[in-house]
Design a protein around this nucleic acid. Structure first.
Length: 842
RNA sequence: GCCCCCGUGGCGGAAUGGUAGACGCGGCAGACUCAAAAUCUGUUGCCUUCACGGGCGUGCUGGUUCAAGUCCGGCCGGGGGCACCA
């Protein structure tokens, strides 16, 4: 019997699927739909093993749903704008476009080796003008709907990438791509009004039942809703200042008012120059980097002004400018209550201001309660607070709000941490912002008939700043409104805009408008989205916002783009170092006799922990290499086996060998001769038939729940059953083997086709219906029940399914082991859980 | 600092409160072979026993329950998210 030739088989079946258009998206609307999507890749030029894991999972699901009779949409495209193309352009003197499309071609070839059931006719790249044309249209729609605005603001400036970043793209005070500490700059920039949907984005999280709890929680924290009160303090200079507080109950514990260094009032006071202006500059210099914040002392500048306590005209509070007050949150001004806020407490210790506890924990004495160095933030009763004394925190909050609202100038509000999405990027390889700046008319949108606004091809990349801005002619245009001379906006959109709606475009990639409404109504939302956890906030929040904005612009009717979300784990590998401490690639290492050695010199190698595959640690394996050795099915099987899909998986050579052996084992079973012909009726009740139908039920359930590792285990169980019942009736053997092939179809599609053919069937498994389990063969008719005495296992009994309790009890008590332990005593109590357990309490 | 998740054999991991360790890797023993590879069979949590058997076992510790890996409290360890957000 010939060994299974994966390479030959895989090429053959990939060609056959392609020739027969097996994976084209159905156009009928009669069947239920299932939209399966994996996060589309950035075209770096090579697929890495993380892609393989991601796309294998998606492909299994797509094939499984197709077999179950769904109309499946399973497309692929390219998130193609971005900085690496510009860097390549600068270093290799190629155009970003040529570089990107060459990478796409190379990656597509590699992806095709995996045998993914994708509809390639829907492929597009976000850098195609045919795509971003519609994105520009959406931008203009959003502008019309009031969801786009331009504003001068403090922005996060990445000094390495020479561009601004959104808040979500600043990780620990550093640029998400460059890793450079982010600087603050004041620039006029484009924003998308994501905060218009703060509440909706927050509340709808509860409806996303098929999202990981973790991701929902991360988004919830990111949006950061808090309820509080806005109210004003009158100032000694005749002005007033509005503050925001979530703890208005602590108002009688106030000891200062603090303004942000960027507060308009601070600006005004600093105009006179001098110490305050210097203080202000100092605060700005420190920036937003994590280390800076960690080390930065709470610093204040006493303005000399005082603020009048809203409940006591004779009570004056000092007004400081403080470095820890953020202009972007609340009103940019606060009142400080040191006893019940750690930050305020640190501040007053420095400036010797009073600390008056006003919330006293249950059981403590109000006269002697002292917070010491740790602010008390727990519940309790109000004290030292005049008319609030004795109230709970909640009652006091309410009372203060009521009274201040009555006095005027106060308002209960909800405050969010979420900021608007800054989408301007000073980069040329992106979607140009379709706006024109006219001296006479101001900002004017480009006419829709003039879309797409395309960037020129002849960009110079050796310039400082944005090559688009530096281009000699491109930005000069005429005003769409008055026809006079005007300039184009030279910023491009954040590439996260590109990925915020691509899944909607996939529904009809030929649509003349941004989307085909009929197609999106049918296909959206995406039923199962699969990708990395690293997009938990950025991409997934932006896409949720985009759906809402597109709904407002009447392109879609839904608000949530992804009904199901799955975040898969990373692929890891052991790390290796030689005696000099330099990293070694896995292929240079030979593992034997419990040790690891260099392949050529037999020098011992230090084996380090398994870590995410990365170039710097050299612990990478190239997908194309392992596909070349084992074939795609082996790699796919590895990616699905053993480790639950949401966890990190470790790639090992032994594991790959084992998967390869299993491929051969299935091939040996399926290519056996001596089976009755296709269509031989099978009936009766044989253990092999039971194993077969139990496998159908279990694999079906596990695949539907994306428990691929368990589905794999169930397949092994069936294979073991086939192997150990060689004397089963031939028809039952055929049934078992055919079932096996159908069950592995989504996971090892090429092997399945070859086996299907060997079993005498016509192609394709890919279009064959999913097997259905016979309930009569899945159900057990005899049950093994555990018998415990005082919770300790003493034996088992075999009884008829659903036998009555008395019968089970009698059988259990009859066990010799039970009798020995009971030693003649009568049990106090016997608990019988039908079909499960008998517990005898002695 | 705040919030969240996870701790099960040598390893990856199973287990609606009901026989802990399914399935796989690795190990051990055997068959086939001149030999090896490949394949097949058996075995494999720990301790104890010639054996039958017995005891102990899901990070530690208390609790709820006839019954706890699973539920609740406290601790220890690992990972992640947010972080001057008033």
């Amino acid at each position: 019997m010939a060994r299974y030739n994966a390479k030959e088989s895989e090429q053959r079946w990939q060609a056959a699927w392609n020739d027969d258009h097996v994976f084209l998206t159905p156009t009928d609307r009669a069947k239920p739909k299932c939209y399966v999507l994996e996060m589309f890749p950035y075209p770096s030029g090579r697929i890495h093993i993380g892609h393989v894991r991601n796309y294998t999972m998606g492909d299994v699901l797509a094939r499984f749903k197709r077999a179950q009779g769904f109309n499946v949409l399973h497309p692929m495209g390219w998130d193609a704008f971005g900085l690496p193309a510009e860097n390549a352009a600068r270093e290799k003197h190629v155009s970003p476009r040529d570089w990107t499309y060459a990478n796409i071609a190379a990656m597509k070839d590699q992806l095709k080796l995996m045998g993914l059931s994708l509809d390639w006719t829907r492929e597009f790249a976000t850098c195609d003008p045919a795509y971003y044309k519609h994105q520009q249209k959406l931008f203009l729609d959003f502008w019309r709907e009031g969801l786009v605005y331009r504003s001068e603001a403090d922005v996060n400036w990445d000094p390495v990438d020479q561009t601004v970043l959104a808040n979500e793209q600043v990780i620990d005070g550093r640029g998400w791509r460059s890793g450079a500490p982010v600087e603050r700059k004041k620039l006029s920039q484009w924003f998308l009004k994501i905060t218009a949907y703060s509440d909706s984005l927050l509340e709808a999280l509860d409806t996303l039942s098929r999202w990981p709890e973790k991701v929902r929680l991360m988004q919830k924290n990111w949006i950061g809703r808090s309820e509080g009160l806005r109210f004003t303090f009158k100032l000694s200079n005749g002005g007033e200042v509005e503050v925001f507080s979530t703890r208005p109950d602590t108002l009688f514990g106030a000891s200062f008012v603090a303004l942000s260094p960027d507060h308009p009032l601070t600006e005004e006071l600093a105009k006179q120059g001098g110490a305050l202006a210097r203080f202000q500059a100092e605060c700005r210099r420190i920036g937003t980097a994590e280390e800076a914040i960690e080390k930065a002392e709470k610093l204040g500048y006493d303005t000399g002004l005082t603020a009048t306590h809203p409940f006591d005209p004779n009570w004056k509070l000092p007004v400081y400018v403080a470095n820890f007050v953020l202009m972007a949150y609340g009103t940019g001004a606060i009142f400080g209550c040191p006893a019940h806020d750690q930050r305020d407490l640190d501040f007053v210790h420095k400036y010797n201001l009073p600390v008056v506890p006003v919330v006293i924990p249950e059981g403590a004495d109000p006269r002697s309660f002292d917070v010491g160095n740790e602010a008390y933030v727990g519940p309790g009763r109000l004290a030292n607070s005049r008319f609030l004394d004795g109230m709970t925190v909640e009652q006091a909050k309410d009372e203060v709000a009521k009274r201040l609202e009555a006095q005027g100038g106060a308002k209960r509000t909800v405050q969010y941490r979420l900021r608007d999405w800054l989408v301007s990027r000073q980069r040329p390889w992106g979607c140009p912002i379709p706006m024109v700046h006219c001296a006479k008319c101001g900002v004017v949108p480009v006419g829709e008939s003039d879309l797409p606004v395309k960037a020129p091809d002849d960009l110079a990349f050796n310039v400082k700043g944005n090559p688009l801005d530096a281009h000699p002619t491109w930005k000069h245009t005429t005003c769409p409104k008055c026809g006079g001379a005007a300039t184009r906006d030279t910023d491009t959109l954040d590439t996260f805009v590109d990925s915020s709606w691509y899944f909607a475009r996939f529904c009809d990639t030929n649509a003349a408008e941004p989307v085909n409404r009929e197609a999106v109504d049918y296909w959206l939302p995406v039923d199962q989205y699969i990708g990395g956890i690293e997009h938990a906030i950025l991409h997934l929040l932006y896409a949720r916002f985009f759906m809402r904005a597109m709904k407002k612009a009447e392109w879609v009717r839904i608000e949530e783009p992804f009904a199901g979300l799955f975040t898969q784990g990373m692929v890891c590998h052991e790390t290796y170092k030689d005696s000099k401490g330099d990293w070694l690639p896995p292929e240079a290492v030979n593992k034997r006799d419990g040790g690891a050695f260099l392949k050529d010199s037999h020098e011992p190698v230090t084996v380090g922990p398994s870590e995410k595959m990365s170039k710097s640690k050299k612990n990478v394996v190239a997908p194309e290499t392992i596909i070349d050795i084992f074939g795609a099915d082996t790699i796919r099987w590895f990616m699905l086996s053993d480790t639950p899909p949401e966890r990190d998986i470790e790639w090992t050579a032994e594991g790959a060998d084992a998967c390869w052996k299993f491929v051969q084992r299935i091939w040996r079973l399926a290519s056996e001769t001596g089976l009755p012909p296709v269509g031989t009726p099978v009936s009766g009740d044989h253990p092999l038939r039971r194993a077969t139908h139990r496998a159908i039920a279990a694999v079906t359930e596990d695949l539907a729940a994306l428990r691929f590792n368990r589905a794999v285990a169930q397949v092994y169980t069936l294979v073991n059953a086939v192997g150990s019942t060689q004397n089963a009736p031939p028809a039952a053997q055929r049934e078992a083997l055919e079932t096996l092939v159908l069950l592995i179809g989504p996971m090892m599609p090429h092997l399945a086709e070859s086996c299907w053919e060997a079993l005498g069937h016509k192609p394709f498994v890919a279009t064959a219906p999913w097997p259905v389990a016979d309930p009569a063969l899945v159900a057990e008719d005899t049950i093994t029940m555990a018998v415990q005495v005082n919770g300790k296992l003493r034996g088992t009994i075999t009884v008829a399914k659903d036998c009555d309790k008395a019968e089970a009890e009698k059988a259990a008590l009859a066990l010799e082991t039970v009798q020995r332990v009971l030693d003649g005593k009568t049990p106090k109590k016997v608990i019988v859980v039908p079909n499960r357990i008998v517990n005898i309490v002695a």
